[in-house]
Design a protein around this nucleic acid. Sequence first.
DNA 1: CATTTTAATTTGTAAGACAAATATTATGAA
DNA 2: TTCATAATATTTGTCTTACAAATTAAAATG
Lengths: 241, 241
Amino acid sequence: MRTFEAIDNKTVTLVDQIENQLLTYFKNNKFQIGDEIPNETELANALGVSRSALREALSRLKMMGLIESRARRGMVIKEPSLLGGMKKIIAPKILCEKTLLDLLGFRVSLEIGISEYIFANITSENIQELETIVRMGKVLGNNEYPMASEYMFHSKLYQITQNNMIAEFQDIIHPVLNFIKDKFREVFEPINMQLERQDRLVSHSDLLDHIKAGDKEGYRKAIEQHFLVYNIFLKMAKSEK
Amino acid sequence: MRTFEAIDNKTVTLVDQIENQLLTYFKNNKFQIGDEIPNETELANALGVSRSALREALSRLKMMGLIESRARRGMVIKEPSLLGGMKKIIAPKILCEKTLLDLLGFRVSLEIGISEYIFANITSENIQELETIVRMGKVLGNNEYPMASEYMFHSKLYQITQNNMIAEFQDIIHPVLNFIKDKFREVFEPINMQLERQDRLVSHSDLLDHIKAGDKEGYRKAIEQHFLVYNIFLKMAKSEK
DNA sequence: CATTTTAATTTGTAAGACAAATATTATGAA
DNA sequence: TTCATAATATTTGTCTTACAAATTAAAATG
């Protein structure tokens, strides 16, 4: 069987085609979670391809969690992990700068956007946990927190939303953000110093105060301010280009 | 070589292990975009596995865009498509209800969160385009817009942020949102009717007015109101459970 | 009918083969 | 030597065959 070239001179292999055929097959034939799918030889025959090529395509769907194969008992459909692929392959050092900046903007947007859900779901236990985290994370200066506390504070916020996908997403991109902070350290520092001089730094403690007071609007303004350093940085990065 | 069972009785196959080994190999050895990687027989020998097993693992990384193989010329590292896997396997009908609701909440949060970036990047051309879209999308009633206009209006907002990842993400989950709107139609309708009676519906036209006026705070309140139906729905869905 | 034995299924892995296009080397001519 | 051409080597894509091992299904046995 022959491969051929797509518009952008990237070869579309047989395995690519099989992958697509399988996906449309599963999507169009009302497969539900738990449903068994035909065995490998059947699928290979139906598609007119070798078992090895088929297995390469199946392997991809297994990575995404759409298919689970129980050794020697056949394969079943599972709910795919939407962020699973991202989680596996994310590697800050391999991402180009534009992608890094986009991820930063994505994260800032998302965290500002969840304000509503935080206030809708917050409990007194949550507030106690946040207080503990804030206490153990004394500010080091310059808007920087000890890594553990920084991570736990924001992580707890996502958790409060009770939206697993948001929490998982933030968890996945967390190492990327650390990478960005490190990579552009010499850019962030003067920004933070200037904000500090202007007394415009918003600490975790300040954020928590708004939460405790049930002051949603105040919180939103504060969280925007908390992330101001990133937005200044993003604006600088864009204008440079 | 033997497979073995992980904690949750899910079999960890040799291919799974190879996938991990390759990923850590690429991550730890400062591979950059464009770098060539060893050929298949070399990799297979180095890992002590067959070429077919190795190829199943490589196939996964190719799907995610981390590796591109130029037929008969070797393989190179590419910047992986973080959302590519998600885009491929997303299929509303295969997702469970909790995931659907999470995606809805994710989208609402993100779109509210990008308000800042919209006002930071808006141009007069953008406004003209939005006006055209709004004009061609006369309200059908009950907070529902013609599909094309609905999609184009929000899509344009993401585009204005100039954040490709946000735009791509929203584009990917768009069919899921349509699926949700359809699946829970009988729940959304009464909510929208009540909001309409209370004159609390915010139209695209209203949103655009805030944008034109440069009224960021007004816009944010308006976009929250625009999505209120979803948040009411999400709260109902959660309390039911 | 119950229990044990046997056979059939099915995924996981390995190995070998070859096509086809590209890259590399060798060869020959000017 | 230099350049053009021919031969060779390399490498991915695909197919085929083979077998192990565990589970399930079927058959045999008492």
